[in-house]
Simulated scan of single mutants.
Amino acid sequence: MKRKRKWMIALGFLILVCGGYMAVSAGNEAAVSNHISTGIIDIELEEHQIKNGKEAKWQDNPLLLPGADVSKIPRIHNRGSDCYVRASIGFRDLAVDLERHIYGLGGSWVKKSDGYYYYTDILKTGESTDLFKGIQIPANFPQEAEGSAFHLDISVDAIQSQNFTPDFSSGMPWGQVEILKCEKQGPYQITSYTPGTGRIFQVEYRGESDSLFINEEDFFENFPVLMPGDVYSDSAELRNNSEKEMELYFRSEVSEKQELTEEVELFITVETDGNEKMLYKGPLKAESLSENRLLAKIPKSGQGKLSFTVTVPKELDNRYSAEEGQVKWIFTTNPKDSGLPSVRTGDFQRIGIFLAAAGVSLGLIVIIMKRKKSNETNHRYSH
C-alpha cells in the first residue's frame, strides 16, 4: 500500500511539473491578428424645398402656373467612402423643355455631351451637395400644356475617388464604366480614407526568458480602409536579443470562411544580413502557410525585417463592400514537428493550468485517502 501512495504522489508531482513547463514554453510562440476592411460607395438622394422662408421636405404635385418659381432642391448625401457623383435629369409627359429653366446649379456641376451632370469635386464621407435650387416655369408656358401632369426624374450615380481619375475635359468624364447597385444596407461603420498611424512593428526574441514578444496587436494597423486597386505595404522588425542564433518560424491561420481573404493578395519577403528572399505570394487566406516554415535565422544580437504588401484587385465588385477579414500570423522559435495537432499560445496556458489543477486535485485525493486509512485503522484497534 505504501508503494501505491508513493506512486500516486510521484504522478501528481509529475503532472505539476509538466503543467508548469507547458505554461512557460508558451512564451516561445506569439501571435498577431491582422484585420482588413473594405470601403463602400453609398449615396442617398433627398429632395427639399423652401416653404414660408424655411427649408422643408419636398411635397409632390404642386400646382404650377406660368411664371411660377418652383423651389426644388435635390440633395446628394455621401453615406460611404469618398467618391465622385453624377446626375441625370429628365422630364416626362411634357412637350416643353424645362431642363434649361433649372436654376441654382452649383459651380462644381458641369453638364457633358453624354447628358450627365458631373460634380467635379470629390464628395467626401459624410458630406452633401445640392444639384440645383429650383425651376422657373416660363411665363409663355403653352396653353396646351396647362392642366396636364408631368414628372421630373433625377437619378444619381457614384464611383470611388480612390484609384480613379475622371477626365473632365472629355464629353464622357467617367468613360465606359459599369454602374452597380450598392448591395449593402446599413448600419455599417464607415471610416474616411486616411493614412494609418505610422506605428513600427516588432517581433523580439529575449534569450534571458526564452520568449517571443510582439509590440502590437495588429500589423495591418497602418492600413486604411481598402478600396479596389489599392496596394499597401508595411514591415516588421525581427530582433534577436540573445547570445545565440535564433531560428524564427512562421505560419498563418484563418479561423473561418472569409471570402474577402480569398480575394485580397498578399506578398511577404524577409531580409537578414542584407539578403532578401520571398516567403509567400498569393491570397491572404494562405493554405500553404498553415504549417510552420522557417522564416529566418537571425544571428545573436542581430535583426532582420519582414516586409508585407496587400493588394486589392481592381475588379473587386460591390459584393465585397464594407467587408472585413482577419488572418492570424503566428511566430515561434520552437515549432512542434511531432505530428501532434498544433496548439496555440492560449491553449498552452489553458493546458498548463488544467494539468496543474489536476495535479493539485490528485495530491488532495492522496492526502484524503491517507487520512481515511488512518481513521479506519484507529477505529479497528479501539475495539
Rank of each mutant, 00 (worst) to 15 (best):
M1Q: 13
R5W: 06
A10H: 02
F13P: 05
L14W: 15
L14E: 08
I15T: 10
Y21S: 14
Y21P: 07
A26T: 04
N28K: 13
S37E: 15
I41T: 12
L45I: 04
H48P: 04
H48D: 10
K51H: 15
N52C: 08
K57A: 12
P62I: 07
L63N: 12
D69P: 00
K72A: 14
R75M: 09
R79H: 14
A87K: 00
D93M: 07
E99Y: 02
G104V: 12
L105R: 13
L105D: 03
G106S: 06
G106I: 00
G107V: 08
W109E: 06
V110R: 11
D114Q: 05
Y117P: 00
T120D: 03
D121Q: 13
I122H: 01
S128Y: 10
T129A: 15
D130G: 08
P138T: 06
N140D: 08
E144M: 11
E146Y: 09
A149N: 14
F150G: 08
F150C: 07
H151R: 11
I154H: 11
D157H: 07
D157V: 04
I159A: 07
S161R: 09
V177K: 14
I179V: 14
C182E: 07
Q185S: 15
Q185H: 12
Q185I: 10
P187R: 15
P187A: 11
Y188A: 10
S192W: 08
Y193H: 14
T194K: 15
E204K: 10
G207N: 04
S209C: 10
S211Y: 03
I214A: 04
E217V: 15
D218E: 05
D218R: 01
F219W: 02
F220C: 02
N222E: 06
P224H: 01
G229Y: 00
S233M: 10
D234A: 02
D234L: 03
S235L: 09
L238E: 03
R239N: 12
N240G: 07
N240L: 05
S242Y: 09
S242E: 04
E245L: 12
E245R: 10
M246A: 08
M246Q: 10
L248D: 00
E253G: 01
E256R: 14
Q258A: 10
L260G: 01
I268N: 00
T272K: 11
E276T: 15
L279H: 00
S288T: 13
N292Y: 08
A296Y: 00
I298F: 06
P299G: 05
K300E: 12
S301C: 07
S301G: 13
Q303P: 15
K305M: 14
V310D: 00
E315I: 08
R319H: 13
R319K: 11
Y320S: 04
S321W: 04
E323F: 09
E324D: 14
Q326F: 03
K328G: 01
I330Y: 00
F331G: 00
N334A: 11
P335A: 02
K336A: 12
S338T: 14
G339P: 03
P341L: 06
R344D: 15
I351A: 09
S361Y: 13
G363M: 14
G363A: 11
V366Y: 04
I367P: 01
M369A: 08
R371D: 11
K372F: 13
S374R: 13
T377K: 11
R380P: 02
